[in-house]
Design a protein around this nucleic acid. Structure first.
Lengths: 341, 341
DNA sequence: CTGAAAGCGCTTACAG
DNA sequence: CTGAAAGCGCTTACAG
């Protein structure tokens, strides 16, 4: 039924081990003639090596897990940003000859089983909270090399790449400040003293500090990162903050909701209120006005994640410091000079 | 290092085979006492079965491949619809105790290797062209059970689920006709005598036929399914078809582009021109006006795909006929009664 | 209800 | 440059 290494060996009149050496490119140990003949016969027979047999006998499976959190009965890819990352990570892994096991995690207790059962060479954690990443121990990962994307956890087991959240928010705020805005609302989910949102908040404030502009902490609006929450916030924004002329939202989806809410309430974007988002989803080009936002380099982040992981696996040494991926500001139509008050 | 079946067996004072029976739920063959003890010890030791060893010795790997086409250097998930399907399929597979291997295919020649190397129990083909699905043979799939989603290929090896494209387009056209529209543009990619777009075209025409309305074939506009192409079409639409009052587009992205193009050209949506899309992406709620569209039940399609595949695997008999998944019309703000001419 | 033996398809030291 | 043997961690008939 299935063509095995042994079948190729018999047909070629050599030992299985010689075929193994040819297949795995250990050419130093086989004569050119034999290589050529074994190759030809393997092709003729349509030989495909058994990855499970290989994984069982060798130390390497060339299998990488991609773990994504998911609500119990829910589908895994919440945000468009996560989905884009999955696609990019798959591409890069495939380019390097690895396979991808995609796995939703509804409870951290599943991580050990997810990591161990297929003898993964490594795994990427995508979209987990810092506190979840914090909680992983050498026991839970069981010797599997792991890496968390966009994490500010200080867990040495999970060092990985992240977008430059601080610089991104600083760019966004700076853009608004340059346009003359001074009372800028910061809209995003609740945050603590560490993490993605905290970094963005610090970058936002830093931009103010740099030009000596004051900023009123009451301009923080805590909301969930959804279009619906943005819409609600946008509708009531000018009622709550009458003198506000701009909003920086920590996600595009949220920013777009806010824009629409503002429009519904009779405010014009960007003439009355400017809005800046974060992520640069395709979506930003499809809404009216097109959204000015901070662009994350998803391809670079995915490539960096894969390279850091594979390097660590092949060289045997884990990365010591997080890698920061550059971001940039994409100016579109949702920002304009602050109106004269 | 790794805890093995044998380690559990030794600790429990039983044979490896008894542990195997306990782990695999063959309780008929083990005494309750033993079951309880083996379970406890396995837990204590943190035993996780080796999937590759299991896959090698048993006939089953409990691994399902998800194959998605991808341009060579490109990332795999082109459309939001595909991405949503990936998430739903993963969830359903996980629920049934299977694992998911996600694989981009840039050349059909890769399919055999993708299917065979991990001894997959089955695979789902997502987003392939009918002609690509047609070309798969028993040799290329090599005994692996496969299933194509949304395919109108008549290949008996790949029978799977698909959305009711005909009914969806019929509903969309019917909605526009009921609103009094009579010169409706059909916008979509080039199509032949079989396939998704062809079905939608037939449903569109059927709606006209049912109410005895004529329809001018020159109202077909062939465009790529992108926002940019939609934009271009929208801008020039009324110049090309002066008496047109409505557009049915075969995809939301396209429909949204068309809406914006129309708006740019000075036409009002829906007052002057109504627009209907297909898919019901989240996006439809985020644009202004919110898009009326045909909703595909992605969760149902994913669940159906997984169930059909797993059934075929476990029962040993392949599905004989495609399963059609219902669609529905979601009325939002982009459609209105035809203006008086 | 329980076990000893063979085997799944590879790779890895070890010899020559 | 090539090979025989052992082993990776399981499951599967076959016995008892």
């Amino acid at each position: 039924m299935r063509v095995r290494l042994r079948d190729v060996a018999e047909r070629a009149g050599v030992s299985p081990m010689t075929v193994s050496n040819v297949i795995n490119g250990n050419h130093a140990r086989v004569s050119p003639d034999t290589i050529e003949r074994v190759r030809r016969i393997a092709d003729e027979l349509g030989y495909v090596p058994s990855a499970s047999a290989r994984s069982l006998s060798a130390r390497s499976s060339r299998l990488i897990g991609l773990l994504v959190p998911t609500a119990d009965e829910d589908s895994l890819m919440i945000s468009p940003h996560t989905m884009a990352m999955v696609g990019q990570i798959e591409r890069e892994l495939r380019r390097l000859g690895y396979h991808l096991l995609l796995r939703g995690i509804s409870d951290l207790g599943e991580v050990t089983e997810a990591l161990q059962s297929w003898s993964l060479d490594g795994a990427i954690l995508l979209g987990f909270l810092d506190e979840e990443v914090d909680s992983l121990t050498a026991t839970t990962v069981g010797g599997v090399r792991v890496l968390a994307v966009d994490s500010y956890s200080s867990n040495p087991l999970t060092v990985g790449p992240r977008s430059d959240d601080f610089a991104g928010a600083r760019l966004a705020a700076r853009h608004l400040l340059d346009l003359g805005h001074r009372r800028i609302v910061f809209a995003g989910p609740a945050f603590t003293g560490v993490g993605v949102v905290h970094e963005r908040f610090e970058g936002f404030r830093q931009a103010h500090a740099e030009i000596g502009a004051g900023w009123d902490p009451r301009l923080v609006e805590t909301v969930n990162t959804t279009h619906a929450d943005g819409l609600r916030l946008g509708r009531g924004l000018l009622a709550r903050h009458p003198r506000t002329t701009a909003v920086f939202a920590t996600a595009d989806i949220l920013a777009i909701g806010i824009m629409h809410g503002l429009t519904e309430s009779g405010a014009r974007v960007p003439d009355d209120v400017s809005v800046v988002g974060f992520d640069d989803l395709d979506l930003c080009d499809y809404v009216v006005p097109r959204l000015t936002t901070v662009s994350q380099d998803i391809a670079a982040k995915a490539t960096t994640a894969v390279r850091m992981l594979i390097d660590a696996i092949e060289k045997g040494t884990p990365p010591t410091a997080p890698v920061t991926v550059d971001v940039s500001l994409v100016k579109r139509d949702s920002t304009a000079p602050a109106p004269q008050q």
